[in-house]
Write a protein that binds this DNA or RNA. Sequence first.
DNA 1: AAAAATTATGTGACTTGTCACGTAAATATT
DNA 2: AATATTTACGTGACAAGTCACATAATTTTT
Lengths: 169, 169
Amino acid sequence: MTNQIRTRPDKVKARQLEQNRNLFGRLSAAALASRVQAQRMLKSAGELSITEWRVLWDLAEAGPLTVTEMAAIQHTDHALISRAIPMMVRKGYATTSVSQTDRRQSLIELTDQGRDVFNQTSVVMSARRAALSRTFSEDDVDTFIKLIDRFEAFVEAPLPENPTAEAAP
Amino acid sequence: MTNQIRTRPDKVKARQLEQNRNLFGRLSAAALASRVQAQRMLKSAGELSITEWRVLWDLAEAGPLTVTEMAAIQHTDHALISRAIPMMVRKGYATTSVSQTDRRQSLIELTDQGRDVFNQTSVVMSARRAALSRTFSEDDVDTFIKLIDRFEAFVEAPLPENPTAEAAP
DNA sequence: AAAAATTATGTGACTTGTCACGTAAATATT
DNA sequence: AATATTTACGTGACAAGTCACATAATTTTT
């Protein structure tokens, strides 16, 4: 009895230690924590959602863009962007217009007010990136990005490549 | 006019390239892709949600656990686990009992059926981890984990450490 | 011992993200 | 030219995750 009471917390700690080297879990936790940090910073700087910030940033840097283009830039689903646009238009941050060359596309463009909000929010968000690059040297980033490249290739492969071991007789 | 038509796609590509070195975005995309892969594998192996799988795994490895303990192991919110339990009990994978030593806690325990499902699902999921460790050497994992450690520390800090530059007169 | 602070759990409300489907427009095939 | 495919976008439905709050039980202060 006493034995069980004393060993259970140890089991928890052991399990935690074990999971500390689980890349899937660690990467997920880190990304989620990063998202929370971004959400908090955006909240403190104004009233932008994460998607709204990403859209503003893309539009500010790369002129008028379509929904699909932004989805491609952000490696995300077009639904996310599609749903963010109406509110941004209502807030007066962006305008939409049907593309002349392809009437399926809608071109999203920053308004002056949208640019103001971007500039303002950018203070906080680029400070964040600056702080990160004080923590990670160019070489660190390089190493990190390469590892992420490989990890991404792995998780985007249809199925983990099977070892031929089991196929062998 | 023709000019604009020709340069816009370049701008998109340029923006994509630029964002390729944005750790926040890259890490998030990698983690999300990993989640999708896990979801697909779980779907192909049975009918477990991601949270259900994590709970099964923790319970199988570290005996009966409380909600808070599993949340700590998984670096996640207790709400996620709290909500998953009733369905797992209904499916017959786990049982809950009020802890004798602390009547606020509920001890979650695997049933025999739960262990069967774990063993079955484990085939696919540990194959995934095995495939990953074929892609990443121990040293790679080591480097990766250390970078994630630093990144996590950064995003969990209350605010990005300010450079003293601005504070200096 | 009584009061105050902390902790474990459950739950509502919300954000982020994915998938699948329908519609309309553009492109490719015949 | 007519038909078939593909593509862009919007939208419903759902999964995953976070936060804030309520309640009950435990621990700490007084």
